[in-house]
Amino acid sequence: MPWDLAAAVHFQVNQRAAGNGSLMRASTSAVHFAPAGREATMDAARRIAALTHGDRAAWEGTAIFHELARVTFENTDPLTALPDILALVHPDHRDRYAVVLAPDWHPDEATEFNGAVWPCLGSAVWALRTTTSFEDALRAAIDLGGDTDTVAAATGGLAGAYYGLDAIPAHWTQPLHVPLPGFDGQMLDLADLLDLAHRLGG
């Protein structure tokens, strides 16, 4: 099936397609589309999420993530921008996200496992809101348990945009060695990844 039809059929059959995987991969697309402005970055997020997630809840969560990153790159506090961002969320999903992104929400109050997109995003924003460094935000996200890889990936994307590269501990970045698929053992180190990031941002 074409990708869009496959995602839609999966959702129709299973009624479960609001997983947080669309957030796990959203940092790179958020960087790429940020210069295009609010409407373009949120639209791109929805379209990219729809590649694999037929539930609009995943599209809206990814759109919120993109916009949080974009405003942060413009030196706007993403937490104070949340009410304006929520106003742009599809009405069918706005209330769900308003709950988990509220200033007084705690991940212990989640009514679903953080493998779902809205408690995952809520947990990432909570980790950013309740800590004062990149490292502490990541530790807080991981300590929540559950689907820690994706919650930490979303938190890392937001905290990275907020605190910047210099805030990431060197003992985390120096050992980086990412295999490049299809290139016979070639590894990407920090310098290679930074080059990719600069090219991604245009």
Rank of each mutant, 00 (worst) to 15 (best):
L190E: 14
N14S: 15
T155Q: 05
D95Y: 02
I48S: 07
G157P: 00
L144E: 06
E74T: 04
N14F: 13
R16D: 13
G146W: 08
T72N: 06
T173S: 11
W126R: 06
A7W: 08
P91D: 05
D166K: 09
A153F: 01
L86D: 05
A34N: 07
A40S: 11
F65E: 00
E60R: 08
G115E: 12
I142F: 13
Y162R: 15
N114S: 08
D108C: 02
I64Y: 02
A110N: 06
F65Q: 03
D143E: 15
T41A: 14
G61E: 02
H177I: 02
L88N: 02
G202F: 11
W172T: 05
E74R: 15
Q12W: 10
R70C: 06
P35A: 13
A167P: 00
A191V: 08
M24G: 08
G202H: 14
G122F: 07
G19T: 06
A7V: 09
L176G: 08
G160A: 01
T132K: 12
P2D: 15
H93L: 12
A191K: 12
D108N: 12
P107Y: 08
R199W: 11
P103T: 11
D192N: 14
G54L: 05
I48L: 15
T131H: 11
T131A: 06
A49M: 09
P181G: 04
G61Q: 03
A141V: 02
L79S: 09
V100E: 06
Q186C: 10
T80A: 13
Y163R: 05
M24I: 01
M187S: 14
D136H: 14
G146Y: 03
G145A: 13
D77I: 05
R16Y: 04
A34T: 09
A161T: 11
A34G: 08
V151G: 03
T41R: 10
N114E: 07
H198G: 10
A69F: 08
N20E: 03
A49I: 06
R94K: 12
G185S: 12
G115M: 13
R56N: 02
G115Y: 08
L23I: 04
A69K: 07
G145M: 13
P107M: 08
A57L: 14
R70D: 02
L165M: 07
R16G: 01
A7I: 09
A161R: 01
G115K: 12
